[in-house]
Every structure is written in structure tokens, then in C-alpha cells.
């Protein structure tokens, strides 16, 4: 008798794994419904930028009843993120498989080769950010004009930034200025590392997004000298001129974060997710917990708009590859 009870428990334990993977709700009306769980892939490990935005989205969506089905977040950083991208592009339950996607991921995807946007369905863009060039307040240069002057005199300039989108915007900048030989790009693992290098005077310029540099600008340790955008930034970055003010063409490579789905996702599902993420982006929690903290403004774009922006970025990245 006792043996039977123990065996039952064991069977239950095994069955639990099955239930865990299968659990979900059935459709009960004519509208589009998600079957089973939503698999939300993140191509970086826990704690990174993509992970934080994904967990904020899923949190808000579940808490406010925007999406009933449970989300399962998969952090799959293997193969430089390419594994999770491949998994999503060929997912079988296409309607409920999502991937957190940013312009940095796109650059990496193009560099790695094998996959393009044609393998996915772009869904939404939720936030966008642009870059600035910074110099050390006690460094050799105090404005971008001085730097260009030094370049004319044959000086070499070291520029620090991350491997993904900042590298792309750096290349675009060099092309516009014609300074490919005078500027050397030093790759750092994260924005804070490149700013640390700037603080230690190991590079002359650091390219960064405003959020990572905010504190240092307020404290007066570093100065924004160039806005890589078509318009100036808000305070405290408003002292940095755009390239057109300096007599060049403006250069920008907006860094966006959004969500894409599998290639075979149905049109109903695309509409459903676009609507769901729109609702998420309109919540107060999203404003307070995500946008304000990262010095961003709401940038919701639906499938068509997002698709246009993503393809444009893909073209820029492919041109450099």
C-alpha cells in the first residue's frame, strides 16, 4: 500500500513536468486567442538591457490582464544570440513565440550572417534612443571643433564605444567627416566601461546613449560635444550641437528596442500582439518603471512603421558589413 502511494507521488512528479510545459487555456469565443504559453525569447543573459525590458513588458501585460496566457521568458545567450534568433524564426507555435529585438541585436545578426529580417515578422518598436559624443572635462579637447582642428593637424583620435549600434554610428560619422584614418575605434563591453575609459583619459571621445552618461554630465566630469541626431537633445545634453550646425550632414542611427515574432505568425496574431504591446506602452507603470528611468520618451510604432524602421537599419548595417 505504502509503495503504491510512493509510486503515485513519483508519477505525479513526472507528470508535473508535462503539465508545466502544456498548461494553458482554451479559446472560448470567436476572437484570436493564444494557445498554451507564450514563449518570450531574450538573446542575452538575465540582467541585461533586453532582459529588463522583456520582464517589464511581461510583468505589465500579466498584471493588468492585457495578455491572459502565462509568459515564459527564455534567456538564451548562446552563439552570440544567434541561437535564440534561429529558434524564434523557425518556431512551430508561431503565434505565441516572441523575441525581444533591438538595433544592437540586428547588427549582431547581420554580422553573424545566415539570418535577416525576412526570417521574422516585425511587430512593434517600444522605445528609441540616440547617441552623443562625450569628452572628458579635463581632457585635451573641450569641443568638437577642437577635435576636427586637431585631426587636420594630423592628430589621431581614439573613440570608445560598444560593439553593436555605437560602432555602426561611429562608422557613419567617419564616413560623413572623412576621418576614417584619423579616428580609431576601441570596443568596450558596455557603455559604462567606455565611459570609465573616458574618465581615465584612455580614450579621447566616448560615444554613448544619454542614460548611461547622465550622472557624469550633471557632475561635470564629462561634456557632451556632439549630438548624433537631427535635433539637439534635452537638458543636460542641450549644449551639444548637431552635425548640421557644424556644417556637415546630420548622422543618426537610432537605437530602438522592440519585439519581433516568427516568420509564420498569422496576421490575426500580429494584430493581437501589436494591440497588446500598445496597451502596455500606454500604462503608467511603463512610463514610470521603464521610460523615465532610462530617460526615454514613448515611441510606440505598430507593425508597418516598425518594419520600415527595422529594414532601414538593416540596410545601414549591411552596407558596413
Amino acid at each position: 500500500m505504502k509503495k503504491n502511494i510512493i509510486l503515485t507521488v513519483l508519477v505525479f512528479l513526472l507528470a508535473a513536468t508535462a503539465v508545466f510545459a502544456q498548461g494553458g487555456k482554451e479559446a472560448d469565443d470567436g476572437q484570436f486567442h493564444i494557445k498554451g504559453n507564450v514563449d518570450f525569447y531574450v538573446s542575452s543573459s538575465s540582467g541585461g538591457g533586453s532582459d529588463i525590458i522583456t520582464r517589464t513588458i511581461t510583468d505589465i501585460a500579466s498584471k493588468n490582464g492585457i495578455v491572459d496566457a502565462p509568459f515564459i521568458v527564455y534567456n538564451q545567450p548562446d552563439g552570440n544570440g544567434q541561437i535564440s534568433r534561429r529558434t524564434v524564426s523557425t518556431a512551430r507555435n508561431a503565434d505565441s513565440t516572441l523575441l525581444c529585438f533591438s538595433s544592437g541585436d540586428l547588427t549582431a545578426m547581420i554580422q553573424n550572417g545566415g539570418l535577416t529580417l525576412d526570417d521574422f515578422r516585425p511587430l512593434v518598436i517600444l522605445a528609441a534612443d540616440k547617441h552623443l559624443c562625450f569628452v572628458n572635462a579635463e581632457g585635451k579637447y573641450s569641443s568638437f571643433e577642437e577635435i576636427m582642428e586637431a585631426v587636420k593637424n594630423g592628430q589621431k583620435i581614439n573613440v570608445g564605444g560598444t560593439m553593436s549600434d555605437e560602432r555602426v554610428v561611429f562608422n557613419m560619422l567617419c564616413e560623413e567627416l572623412g576621418t576614417k584614418d584619423s579616428f580609431t575605434y576601441i570596443t568596450y563591453g558596455s557603455a559604462s566601461e567606455s565611459i570609465a575609459a573616458l574618465l581615465g583619459n584612455h580614450v579621447d571621445i566616448a560615444i554613448s546613449k544619454p542614460a548611461a552618461a547622465n550622472q557624469y554630465v550633471i557632475a561635470g566630469d564629462i561634456i557632451p560635444v556632439l549630438a548624433l541626431s537631427t535635433t539637439r537633445f534635452g537638458a543636460p545634453f542641450d549644449t551639444a550641437p548637431t552635425l548640421s550646425e557644424l556644417g556637415y550632414n546630420d548622422v543618426e542611427y537610432p537605437m530602438w528596442r522592440g519585439v519581433i515574432g516568427a516568420k509564420n505568425m498569422s496576421d490575426e496574431a500580429v494584430a493581437f500582439w501589436a494591440d497588446a504591446f500598445k496597451k502596455v506602452s500606454e500604462t503608467e507603470e511603463w512610463q514610470k518603471n521603464y521610460l523615465e528611468r532610462n530617460l526615454l520618451v514613448s515611441q510606440y510604432m505598430g507593425p508597418e512603421e516598425a518594419s520600415a524602421v527595422m529594414y532601414e537599419a538593416q540596410a545601414a548595417a549591411q552596407a558596413q558589413n
Binding site: P77, D78, G79, N80, G81, Q82, I83, R86, Q111, N112, G113, G114, M163, R167, I186, T187, G189
Partner: peptide
């Protein structure tokens, strides 16, 4: 996997699993 300084892919022997290097 990917060389972090230049962004170049190296020693992956054609496998996408090796792109990100070994954990």
C-alpha cells in the same frame, strides 16, 4: 567565437553555436 575588439567571427568552424564562444 566573436572577437570583441574587431567584431570579427573567428574559430567557429562554421557552427553558429560557437559564435558566442564557450560559457
Amino acid at each position: 567565437g566573436v572577437d570583441i575588439v574587431s567584431g570579427q567571427i573567428r574559430y567557429n568552424f562554421g557552427s553558429i553555436w560557437l559564435l558566442g564562444g564557450i560559457n
